[in-house]
């Protein structure tokens, strides 16, 4: 149950990263997990075979995810900015494939162990053992969602981001530096990607293939929030995590517990699709 809560919090954290980027730039980053996985592997490698301290390795991981994200966001994404949302999302699949290819080539798909210092710090509440990594995950998602909401609602950057998502060309005409805003959004989402990759690697399994598909529950969480609402995404992520952990004790269904995100996402899609809306902008 607690494990499910923590897992759900991480899904929610990734989902918030996805929604933040989508709302700011209109790009649904399907490479979210793959970039995080690759960078976490680099950090792990530096820690294990180069003997760097773990904290430095994690810092490097996060810096790398930010760099990779910003590079894609500044160099590649603008070339597709005038295309439909689905094409832009498909473009990030290319990035995902490339990251996964490199990860599988250098590190193979073997599962690894990542021990965070917070894992060792355990305490008991009402007879349940809780590690501080789990507490960290839950706290982090609440803080991040609150900060992101504040950022989008109140600050000038946030207003610019929302304007950007609505109409890129119009925003640039208003004198907003589109590239800068986009880079910022990609960078922020990169930080979240790096953090959630490291935490997820420590809480569950640390392999490139698994972390790449971290994007699936995160996407499901984001769909629950209709790709707009940050708190909806948080709720979605935590629901999915809880659903997975509740299925685990039922032996007949235990092996299928990873299908929870898909089932929830389908249910949400069916619910939202009751009424058809028309895109009233005929293509040129």
């Amino acid at each position: 149950m607690i494990a499910g809560l923590a897992l759900g919090a991480l899904y929610a954290l990734s989902g918030v990263g996805l929604v933040l980027l989508y709302r700011a730039t209109g790009v649904l980053n399907l490479a979210y997990g793959a970039v995080g996985a690759l960078c976490a592997l680099v950090g792990w490698e530096l820690n294990q075979s180069r003997g760097l301290p773990l904290e430095l390795g994690i810092l490097i991981t996060i810096l790398l995810t930010v760099t990779a994200n910003v590079l894609y966001g500044v160099l590649v994404a603008p070339l597709m900015a005038h295309r439909s949302a689905v094409v832009q999302a498909t473009g990030t699949l290319g990035l995902a494939l490339a990251c996964l290819g490199i990860a599988n080539w250098y590190w193979t798909d073997k599962a690894r162990a990542l021990r965070l210092p917070t894992d060792a710090l355990r305490f008991e509440v009402l007879g349940v053992v809780i590690s501080s990594t789990q507490v960290l995950a839950v706290l982090l998602v609440l803080v991040v969602a609150a900060v992101a909401t504040w950022l989008l609602r109140v600050t000038r950057w946030g207003t610019n981001m929302r304007a950007l998502a609505a109409d890129r060309e119009l925003t640039s005409l208003l004198g907003v530096s589109v590239r800068k805003i986009e880079a910022l959004a990609w960078g922020l989402s990169g930080i979240l990607a790096g953090v959630s990759a490291v935490l997820l690697a420590s809480l569950t399994l640390f392999s490139a293939g698994w972390l790449t598909f971290l994007v699936i529950p995160a996407l499901a969480a984001a769909l629950v929030g209709r790709l707009r609402s940050l708190w909806g995404t948080v709720a979605g992520g935590i629901t999915i995590g809880l659903a997975e952990s509740l299925l685990a004790p039922v032996s007949a269904l235990a092996q299928f517990r990873s299908v929870a995100p898909f089932v929830i996402a389908i249910a949400v899609t069916v619910w939202h699709a009751r009424k058809r809306t028309y895109e009233m902008r005929p293509s040129a």
Partner: peptide, 19 residues
Amino acid sequence: TFTNLIYVAFGIGLIQSLI
């Protein structure tokens, strides 16, 4: 494990085709 590098080529190819 070099065949995994084909993924990299495919990924870049995908982006290149889209653009």
